[in-house]
Amino acid sequence: MLSDDLAGFARTIVHGESPAFRVDEGYAKYSAQVAVEVYRNNYRGNLHDALAGAYPVVKQLVGDDFFRFMARKFITQYVSRDANLHRYGAELAEWIAAFEPAKQLAYLPDVARLEWACHCAYFAHDGVVLNLNELEKVAPADYGNLVLHRHPSCHVLHSDYPIVALWQAHQPGASEDFRIDLDSGPVDALVSRNNDVVAVTELTPADAAWLLKIQAGTTLGEATAETLDHHPDFDLLRALQMLVAQNVFAGFTLGATS
């Protein structure tokens, strides 16, 4: 059966089992074992490169050798599930959090989470762009019922560490002379894509709280009222202008009037 042949071949590559599938043993210049090693190396190499492509800041923070070591361990535990390599590695942040040798770098899982959000933002579908002319046609009495839709590239993340500063300090062209206080307190990071460029910016706690409610599908009126309860200084107009400029919204609907 074809399926038996392929399953045996797959286990040989992925789990390192000795070849238990029907295959020619000897070739003119090499043995089957050499060929199996070529396939194993390709498998690991492709997954390593996919991780390195998605997590360039993590790689810089731990160095190439440690990243390779980490990737190799991760690859043995996480089999690829998608023919599109850009989808490989979503679980890395969670995995790093439990990875003993990286325990001292407490901020590393959150940096990885931020990088995965950036990676997803880069490849996200284009989505509709918020049409401000259409928005202007909404009657002021209906503003409270507006439901703003999240652009597929927009993500909000919370961290106890200065992940925005860490990320920005490790971008191509960033100055190598930086000082980051790891105890500077929690941050809310916004990942968005504007003119095809993925940006990471820091949100105020009020803006983050409001945007998370909006992302959850809460109406503008409700989200704003709830945010003002906890953050009396929340400035809706300023937040809207800033977030529209960051291309965070993909359109709107008018929620059911209650």
Binding site: A10, V79, A83
Partner: peptide, 17 residues
Amino acid sequence: CWNATQGMVINDLLPFP
């Protein structure tokens, strides 16, 4: 070529009989 079997994807171009 093939690249998937029983829940595993091998992101490579693999031969088959």
